[in-house]
Protein backbone atom coordinates (compact mmCIF):
# COMPACT_ATOMS: atom_id res chain seq x y z
CA UNK A 1 0.00 0.00 0.00
CA UNK A 2 1.50 3.29 -1.08
CA UNK A 3 1.77 5.90 1.63
CA UNK A 4 2.67 9.49 0.85
CA UNK A 5 5.19 10.82 3.40
CA UNK A 6 5.72 14.58 3.82
CA UNK A 7 8.68 15.49 6.04
CA UNK A 8 8.51 19.06 7.30
CA UNK A 9 11.67 21.04 7.97
CA UNK A 10 14.12 20.36 9.49
CA UNK A 11 13.48 16.64 8.94
CA UNK A 12 13.40 17.04 5.16
CA UNK A 13 16.88 18.46 4.82
CA UNK A 14 18.36 16.59 7.75
CA UNK A 15 17.41 13.13 6.54
CA UNK A 16 15.98 13.21 3.05
CA UNK A 17 18.16 15.58 1.08
CA UNK A 18 15.51 18.27 1.06
CA UNK A 19 12.84 16.10 -0.59
CA UNK A 20 9.41 17.37 0.31
CA UNK A 21 7.62 14.12 -0.45
CA UNK A 22 8.42 10.40 -0.45
CA UNK A 23 6.28 7.38 -1.23
CA UNK A 24 6.73 4.17 0.77
CA UNK A 25 4.90 0.86 0.96
CA UNK A 26 3.54 0.35 4.47
CA UNK A 27 0.52 -0.70 6.49
CA UNK A 28 1.36 1.05 9.75
CA UNK A 29 3.74 3.69 11.10
CA UNK A 30 6.29 1.07 12.11
CA UNK A 31 6.58 0.00 8.49
CA UNK A 32 6.71 3.64 7.34
CA UNK A 33 9.52 4.41 9.74
CA UNK A 34 11.40 1.22 8.88
CA UNK A 35 11.22 2.17 5.21
CA UNK A 36 12.46 5.68 6.00
CA UNK A 37 15.29 4.28 8.13
CA UNK A 38 16.39 2.28 5.10
CA UNK A 39 16.52 5.49 3.05
CA UNK A 40 18.09 7.58 5.82
CA UNK A 41 19.92 5.62 8.50
CA UNK A 42 19.52 7.28 11.90
CA UNK A 43 15.96 8.37 11.22
CA UNK A 44 14.49 5.72 13.52
CA UNK A 45 16.30 7.10 16.54
CA UNK A 46 15.15 10.60 15.66
CA UNK A 47 11.61 9.36 15.17
CA UNK A 48 11.52 7.78 18.60
CA UNK A 49 12.40 10.90 20.51
CA UNK A 50 11.98 13.97 18.37
CA UNK A 51 9.14 13.50 15.91
CA UNK A 52 5.39 13.30 15.73
CA UNK A 53 3.52 11.63 12.92
CA UNK A 54 0.27 12.96 11.62
CA UNK A 55 -1.77 10.44 9.64
CA UNK A 56 -4.36 12.09 7.40
CA UNK A 57 -4.33 15.19 9.53
CA UNK A 58 -4.43 13.66 13.02
CA UNK A 59 -1.47 12.91 15.27
CA UNK A 60 -1.04 9.14 15.70
CA UNK A 61 0.91 7.93 18.71
CA UNK A 62 0.38 4.21 18.18
CA UNK A 63 2.79 3.03 15.52
CA UNK A 64 1.04 -0.32 15.28
CA UNK A 65 -2.29 1.16 14.22
CA UNK A 66 -3.28 0.25 10.67
CA UNK A 67 -2.97 3.08 8.15
CA UNK A 68 -5.43 3.01 5.26
CA UNK A 69 -3.98 2.81 1.73
CA UNK A 70 -3.13 6.13 0.04
CA UNK A 71 -2.77 7.84 3.38
CA UNK A 72 -0.68 10.95 3.89
CA UNK A 73 1.82 10.93 6.74
CA UNK A 74 3.32 14.24 7.82
CA UNK A 75 6.46 14.19 9.95
CA UNK A 76 6.72 17.11 12.32
CA UNK A 77 9.05 17.89 15.18
CA UNK A 78 7.66 16.82 18.56
CA UNK A 79 6.04 19.52 20.63
CA UNK A 80 6.04 19.82 24.38
CA UNK A 81 4.14 22.11 26.69
CA UNK A 82 4.52 24.05 29.87
Amino acid sequence: MAIRVVPLAPVDSQFFGGRSELVVEAGNLFAVIRALEAIAPGFLKYAQTRAWFSVNGAIEGDWTATIPPDSEVIILPAIAGG
Binding site: V6, L8, N56, G57, A58, I59, E72, L76
Partner: peptide
Protein backbone atom coordinates in the same frame (compact mmCIF):
# COMPACT_ATOMS: atom_id res chain seq x y z
CA UNK B 1 -10.39 23.01 8.25
CA UNK B 2 -6.75 22.08 7.72
CA UNK B 3 -4.10 24.28 9.25
CA UNK B 4 -1.12 25.47 7.23
CA UNK B 5 0.97 22.83 9.00
CA UNK B 6 -1.24 20.11 7.59
CA UNK B 7 -3.17 19.24 10.72
CA UNK B 8 -6.88 18.81 10.44
CA UNK B 9 -8.97 20.69 12.99
CA UNK B 10 -11.14 18.41 15.07
Amino acid sequence: DTSAMGMECG
